[in-house]
Design a protein around this nucleic acid. Structure first.
Lengths: 341, 341
DNA sequence: CTGTTAGCGCCTTCAG
DNA sequence: CTGAAGGCGCTAACAG
């Protein structure tokens, strides 16, 4: 099939026997002007006959405004991010905007690049999900990129760790982890291990720090050898638990800083021929919907990821507002994975 | 902070004391022309000083080609789709394209609308994941929308069920389900139930049909009362298994047409105070990565979703090619959920 | 190698 | 209520 050249609005206008301006007003109803019914009819028919479709790019250019928003995540395949993405997409759809999805693949440099890419596309707003990685350099570059986008009228919102002066939906990671620690303590557990995630990952850091500080206040601090770093993934959880296996006799519960890691940790326990929670309890963080049916049920901190995504988009679009930070608190969910033997 | 007006390429040109064209060539290197080093240097410096960023929309318009592709899924929060999305995004990124994500929310009408939306945005290619729903009307509308996009030079590829004349990565749903049936038969199971999904859902239909046909060939057809329709979700699986509970004594294994449904089905078994696989075996389809660690391990048909997403994008971008259909076969994975008691 | 000049497709004042 | 004309920011012939 030959690539026919697309019909343009002038083609439609000519076909309908009206001017370009009238055709434009008929098809995309101007805010102020109105078109006589019969003319509008003619235009619409002509457009249908020609199979005309407006060019969103040209419209964006003429109007000086696009109809899309950007979403930056580390990895869509991770249920944490895909749930957030669902929230952002739904909220965007509600206001007639399309979502451009970009993945950092856990590379902080790409995060900056993607913000710039999205800025180039003149996204109306950019939502950055996913914990900031990298050191101060990256944070500064990111701040600059964000500032550039905002200065020229684009909105931005962060999910997770806030950054100075930028609207954000912040998870109370340390508070949630602390609440989890207290709940486990209330349930009678006393000896804790932690699979802590990467040292340079802020979310991981806040979660493990909040957990350990709460323990300290309760007078049952986790021993240093019971706190192991790991990758921020299922496999990281598996490896972390494997490292803790020799100490299992000294532990009641191991806290992995994400559900995905906790699942990996549970697999490691099973592969060692042991049982959760009989030999050791396991707790996670996030309450990923897809994982709510695993057995034993995973004790965790529920985070309303979908709502967070939706709210972040709204924050990002509220251009006039002052930078605003909404803090979302998680809710401890005790399940069988930490039942006392 | 005031919304400063964005610097344009002419601002940069003026600042650098060169012509618009030179600035353009210096910044976005023209394929044919080249710019003297010192001039290019001046331009780049001016651009940096002004914090100039090219406007992707304007470039798209001038070049007559955008740098984005569209992806249509039912629901990104569903791990099936998020894994596909990861594949599409990675492949797009490799060739420097951005992905616009659109969700049908399981509404076939929206599917058509989204194709049109993406066409309006002049997406270089559109990947449609997710089984076609709805009847012949919708299929026809969709075919028309797709044809419109292709006629004007855009690529399209489907994932799942093919449509006549459209490139596709087709899952061999019925073949995979048949292989599963044979594998379960080989393992000694004889009495099967099926949680079949929605009647109008093609993927679900092919999977259950393939499964049942293979059983028939093996001489052990599933009784009609052991085949229950359901929603295409975790809750659908739960409800389906609940409906089968009264018949559990007559069944060795229940096949749910997706892993997510299988997980719901397993939860229903547990909630009834029974055990998988002792009281009944459960099998799914997809081999969702996030669910690979559940216990008992879920017997399923592995589908390389990520690769499928990547390949679909490549098919969609290969505009010159003949309509081509790639069939991907699943691989049966037997795990403990169907271990014989 | 550089500059000038048309558009790309559409919206939007501004006249009529 | 309609039409003509300018411009959005950039690229790509076309001259110089």
């Amino acid at each position: 099939m030959p690539v026919r050249t697309r019909p343009t609005l002038s083609d439609v206008a000519r076909e309908a026997g009206v001017s370009l301006a009238t055709a434009s007003r008929a098809i995309n109803g101007s805010p102020t002007r109105t078109v006589r019914a019969d003319l509008r009819e003619r235009v619409l028919e002509a457009a249908a006959r020609l199979e005309y479709t407006p060019d969103a790019n040209a419209q964006a250019m003429a109007r000086g405004q696009t109809t899309s928003v950007g979403l930056v995540v580390h990895d869509v395949a991770d249920p944490y991010f895909s749930t957030i993405a669902a929230g952002v997409t739904a909220a965007a759809d509600d206001v007639g905007l399309a979502v451009t999805l970009a993945e950092t693949r856990h590379d902080p440099r790409r995060e900056v690049d993607l913000v710039e890419l999205l800025h180039r596309q003149r996204a109306r707003a950019i939502v950055l999900a996913g914990g900031r990685l990298g050191g101060a350099d990256r944070a500064e570059e990111l701040t600059r990129a964000i500032a550039g986008h905002r200065r020229s009228g684009g909105g931005v919102a962060l999910i997770g760790q806030p950054l100075p002066e930028v609207p954000a939906v912040a998870l109370d990671n340390s508070g949630g982890a602390a609440a989890l620690a207290r709940a486990l303590h209330d349930a009678g557990h006393r000896r804790f291990g932690v699979i802590a995630g990467p040292a340079d990952h802020l979310t991981a850091r806040h979660r493990q720090a909040g957990f350990r500080e709460a323990l300290a206040e309760l007078g049952t601090a986790a021993a240093p050898e019971h706190v192991v770093p790991s990758e921020f993934s299922r496999d990281g959880g598996y490896a972390g638990m494997t490292a803790l296996l020799p100490h299992l006799g000294e532990l009641d519960v191991v806290f992995a800083v994400t559900d995905l890691m906790a699942v990996g940790a549970m697999a490691a326990v099973r592969d060692a021929g042991l049982t959760v929670p009989t030999d050791v309890g396991v707790a996670g963080f996030d309450d990923i919907p897809t994982l709510r049916d695993i057995t034993p049920g995973l004790t965790t901190v529920r985070v309303p990821l979908r709502e967070i995504g939706a709210q972040a988009l709204q924050l990002a679009l509220a251009l006039e507002q002052e930078p605003r930070v909404v803090v979302v608190r998680g809710e401890v969910v005790l399940r069988d994975s930490t039942a006392r033997p």
